[in-house]
Amino acid sequence: MAVVHQSCVGYVAEPFASLVAGYPGDDVYPQADFRTEWGPVFHRGRLDGSARVLVLGQDPATHESISRRILVGEAGQRVQGLLAKVGVHTAYVMVNVYLYSVFGQAAGSRHVKNEAIAEYRHRWLDALLVGTDVTAVLALGDLAAKAYERWARTQPDAAAALHVAAIRHPTYAEGSARASGRPLAETTAAQLANWNEHLDDLAAHVAAEGPTDLTPYAAGWGPTDLAPIPEVDLPAGAPGWWRDVAAWATRQGDDKQTKRATISVVVPKGARTWPAL
């Protein structure tokens, strides 16, 4: 029997069809701060009304630029594992603070109050949070928390009905270790302790699709803490290794501009199933 594949149907229904038809470009996202040349990356997850959790991330990275869906790299795998802990496997939708990849981390902070960026983002959040069945918002990092708070002031009634879990970004540990010089093990433990603080409340405000596992995270990532991305989240025909934990896309180059222009995609060794010649 042939394998029956699932895939994301894309942006066929309103208001999403109009949102992607009229997305902002470098007139709103200045190229000095955003990699607009790689195009916008809009979302991942359910747009059909079945979502119960909204995940608000920051910006697309290398894997996302290729797969055209957000949070599919290691950060996405960590978030997928967190959602699985509270029994959510596909009933979610994810959007980012920024449509385009940030060029330099300081650029994200510079545009926190950008009105034009916020206006378009609010249209997405209105579509996903006003009058829908979403009951919880998972905000990944400070920029996401600030973006959500800004939207909440425009829709106070809808926001009042939502549980908000503002957690440390899934790559906080690596970024904090680089910036502070602290050991990665120490910053990882701090990140996972923060996630543990939100675990029970998040589970209490979400209708689980299946079994939950509220066992707290340990001080380091365990073998089941990361989860693959579901096939149904990606465009039709996406290869299976796009959804695996193994990294497959990196920026390469001898200088900043070459790295900005170059993403190297390599099939992971575990996915090289073709016969040797």
Results as ranks from 00 to 15, higher is better:
Met1Thr: 08
Gln6His: 07
Tyr11Phe: 15
Ala17Glu: 13
Ala17Leu: 13
Ala21Trp: 01
Gly22Lys: 04
Gly22Leu: 01
Pro30Met: 12
Pro30Thr: 13
Trp38Pro: 06
Gly45Asn: 06
Asp48Met: 06
Ser50Met: 09
Arg52Ser: 13
Val53Glu: 10
Val53Cys: 10
Val55Phe: 01
Val55Arg: 08
Leu56Glu: 04
Pro60Glu: 06
Ser67Ala: 15
Arg68Glu: 10
Gln77Asn: 14
Gln80Cys: 08
Leu83Gly: 03
Ala84Tyr: 01
Val86Thr: 09
Ala91Cys: 11
Tyr92Leu: 09
Val95Cys: 07
Tyr98Ala: 03
Gly104His: 06
Ala106Val: 09
Gly108Pro: 09
Lys113Ser: 15
Ala118Ile: 07
Arg121Lys: 12
His122Trp: 14
Leu125Tyr: 04
Ala127Gln: 07
Leu128Ile: 03
Val134Leu: 08
Leu138Pro: 11
Leu143Asp: 11
Ala144Glu: 07
Glu149His: 12
Arg150Gly: 08
Ala152Gln: 02
Thr154Phe: 02
Thr154Ala: 14
Ala160Leu: 04
Val164Tyr: 04
Arg168Val: 00
Arg168Met: 07
Ala173Arg: 02
Ala173Trp: 05
Glu174Cys: 01
Ser176Gln: 15
Ala177His: 02
Arg178Asp: 12
Pro183Glu: 14
Leu184Gln: 05
Leu184Thr: 02
Thr187Pro: 13
Gln191Glu: 15
Ala193Tyr: 03
Ala193Leu: 09
Trp195Lys: 10
Asp201Thr: 13
Ala203Met: 08
Val206Ile: 14
Ala207Arg: 15
Ala208Arg: 14
Trp221Lys: 04
Pro223Lys: 04
Asp233Ile: 05
Asp233Asn: 14
Pro235Leu: 02
Gly240Leu: 13
Trp241Asp: 07
Asp244Cys: 07
Val245Phe: 07
Ala246Lys: 10
Trp248Ile: 05
Ala249Asn: 11
Ala249Pro: 07
Gly253Gln: 12
Asp254His: 12
Lys256Cys: 00
Arg260Ile: 01
Val267Met: 12
Thr273Glu: 05
